[in-house]
Design a protein around this nucleic acid. Structure first.
Lengths: 329, 329
DNA sequence: TTGTATGCGTTATCAG
DNA sequence: CTGATAACGCATACAA
C-alpha cells in the first residue's frame, strides 16, 4: 500500500500488480511486455494514478526533457509569439521550456548558455546578438535569425525575399522614390538581408532608392533628420518607406505624423514582422509577415532531432505581405 | 579524475579535495563546515567547474525548484508582461518556470494543475476561469485576479479603485454622460469590481451613467448596437466610456471611428491594464495601469513563502491613470 | 566537525 | 519474457 499523501512509485505499482519493478518500467516506456502482464500493470497504474517521476528518470537517463530558450524578452510581440509557439510545440513533444531573458545584454547570452548546460537541458534555442558568441558542442543548438556555421542549424524567415517583396509592393502601389530604414546593424545576421533584397528589387525595377542604417550607438534623432531632409515646401520627396521592423515602423510613422506628413496618402510605409495588436486579425502596420508559428515549430523539431549530424544548416521559411493601414489598399 | 565529457559530480569534487562526499554536500548547501575544509572544497569546485545536478537534488529532496504558471496565453500584452516579470522574479530566486497555456479553455485548467503536480512543481501561480475549479491542497497555490477562499492567496490590482478612478477622471475631463462596457462576465472575479468602483463613483458624483456587460456567448455586435442607439443626428449622447480592458477599448474605438465619432473630441475612452505598444512609453489607449511587475513579484514571493499558513488571502496592489491619446489631455 | 552509508525513483544489465 | 539488482547524484541520519 503506498504511503498516504505521497505520489505512488513504480514499486507501488509493481506490488499492486504483483509483478517486478522492471516490468512496470518496461510498460511505462512502451517496451515489449507480455499482454497479460501489461494489462495487470496498466490496471494498477490507473488504480493508483501513477505518473513517472521526471527527476528519477532524468537522474538515470541524463535527459531532462527540457529545452532552454534564450531570447531578449517577451515584450516585443514578435518574441512573445515566438515563445508562445515554441512552448506549445515543446509541450506537444512532452518537453518543458526553460525561459531565459537576455534583455539584449550580450554578456548574459554566454551566461545563460552555461546555466542551461548546468541544468542539463537537452537542447538550446537561441536568438542572440553577442558578436563572438561561442556555441557549445555536444548539445543540440538551434539559432534563430543568425547563421554561425554549418554545424549550427539556423532557422529564419526569408528575409531577402521579404525585402524584395516589400520593394515590389511599394512600386506596385505607385511609389516612385523609396527608402529603406533600419537600426542596430552591429552584427550581420539574417535580418540584414532585408536590406539586400530590397536594394536588389529596386535596382532590378529601376526604382530610385536610399538606405539609412543606424548603429546601436547613434541617436534616434538621425532618422528625424533624414526625414526632414526630404521635406521640401511641406511635401516629402519620398513616397515609400520599407522599415526593418514593425516596431521601428511604428516610431517612424509617429515622427511623420508629427511632421504633418500623411500616411499612407503622402508616404506609404511597410514594416517587417507581422505584429498584431492584441493578437487580432489586423496588423499594426502594413508589413512583411514572418511565419512565427512555423519558425517556432521548426526550431523545436530541429532541436529535438536525434541525429543532429545531417540536419540542414539554414532553414528559410516563406514570408508574405499583409495590409495594415499604412499603405494604399 | 572525472570521466571526460561528463559533468563532474560531488564524488569527483570530494576526491579532488581529499574530503568526504558529505562534506562537499555541506559546503554546496552552505551548511557550517570547517574553514580549511570549505576552502579545499571550494577550490576543487572551482577547478572542476562543478555545479550540482538538479535532478539528483530533486529526487532526494522532493523539491524541483520549479513553479508552474497557468495562464491563457502570451498574446495579450498584459499576460505577456505578467509572464515576463514572473520569470524574472523566479530566476532571481533560482527557480524555474513551467509555463502552461490554457487558451481560455476551462477544461485545460484542471488538466494543467494535474500535470504540474505530476511534475512535482513546488508551487502554482494561476490565472483561471473555470467556474468550479478545485484548488489542490498540499501545494502552494496563488491565484491572480480571482478569489477562491481565504486559504488560497489571491493577488490582483485594486480593480474597484481603478473603476472609481476612471469615473472621477472622466468627470474631471468634462464628461457629462458616461458608460461602462465589458465582456465575459461568466464568473465573478476581481476584475468584476471595475464596474462596481465605476458605478460607485458615478453615483457619488451624480454623474449619469449606463452599463453594458456582454456574456461570452453574446455576439460582439451588441456593442455596436449599443453605441448606435446613442447616436442622434450624427452626434453621440455619450461623451465618456470606461471599458473593461485595453484590448476591448481598442476594438470599441475602431467601431466609433467607423461611425465617424471622433476620439477623444466627441467621446473620451479609458481602458484598463496599461498595455503599451512594443513596450514603449506610450500607452495604446488612455488607461488604468495595473502594476504588472509588482503583481508578478508578489505572486512569486507569496508562492515561495515557506510558511503558507499565515499568508494574506487577498493582496491588492494600487493602480494609476495614464494618458494614452484617447482622452483630452 | 567530518566521514560513512542509505535511499530517493528510475533505467539498464544480467541471470533465470 | 520476466525478475532481481546495481547505479545515477544528491542530502541526511548516524557513527566516529
Amino acid at each position: 500500500m503506498p504511503k498516504e499523501n505521497k505520489s505512488p512509485t513504480m514499486a507501488d505499482v509493481a506490488r499492486e500488480a504483483g509483478v517486478a519493478l522492471g516490468t512496470v518500467s518496461r510498460v511505462v516506456n512502451g517496451e515489449p511486455v507480455g499482454k497479460e502482464f501489461r494489462e495487470k500493470v496498466n490496471e494498477a497504474i490507473r488504480k493508483l494514478g501513477y505518473r513517472y517521476n521526471p527527476s528519477g528518470r532524468a537522474l538515470r537517463t541524463d535527459r531532462t526533457n527540457t529545452v532552454a530558450v534564450i531570447i531578449p524578452n517577451t515584450i516585443n510581440p514578435f518574441f512573445s509569439m515566438l515563445v508562445y509557439h515554441i512552448n506549445i510545440a515543446l509541450e506537444k513533444h512532452n518537453y518543458k521550456m526553460m525561459l531565459c531573458f537576455t534583455e539584449y545584454d550580450r554578456d548574459r547570452e554566454p551566461e545563460f548558455i552555461q546555466l542551461a548546460q548546468h541544468n542539463r537541458v537537452d537542447g538550446i534555442i537561441a536568438l542572440t546578438y553577442h558578436p563572438s558568441l561561442v556555441i557549445p558542442e555536444g548539445i543540440p543548438f538551434v539559432t534563430i535569425d543568425r547563421f554561425f556555421s554549418s554545424s549550427v542549424p539556423c532557422v529564419s524567415s526569408d528575409n531577402f525575399g521579404g525585402g524584395y517583396l516589400a520593394a515590389r509592393k511599394l512600386k506596385e502601389l505607385g511609389c516612385t522614390n523609396v527608402a529603406f530604414m533600419r537600426t542596430g546593424s552591429a552584427i550581420t545576421n539574417e535580418p540584414s538581408k532585408r536590406r539586400d533584397g530590397f536594394v536588389s528589387a529596386c535596382v532590378e525595377m529601376g526604382l530610385p532608392f536610399e538606405v539609412i542604417c543606424l548603429e546601436d550607438s547613434e541617436p534616434f534623432e538621425k532618422f528625424e533628420e533624414f526625414l526632414t531632409r526630404h521635406l521640401e515646401h511641406g511635401r516629402m520627396s519620398l513616397d515609400g518607406l520599407f522599415v526593418g521592423t514593425d516596431s521601428l515602423a511604428w516610431k517612424i510613422i509617429r515622427i511623420l505624423r508629427k511632421m504633418n506628413v500623411r500616411v499612407p496618402e503622402d508616404v506609404q510605409v511597410i514594416g517587417f514582422d507581422g505584429s498584431r495588436m492584441f493578437g487580432e486579425q489586423e496588423m499594426i502596420v502594413s508589413t512583411i509577415v514572418q511565419p512565427v508559428r512555423e519558425i517556432a515549430e521548426t526550431c523545436v523539431n530541429t532541436v529535438l532531432t536525434r541525429d543532429f549530424s545531417n540536419v540542414p544548416s539554414l532553414i528559410c521559411l516563406p514570408v508574405k505581405y499583409a495590409y495594415g493601414g499604412t499603405t494604399k489598399e
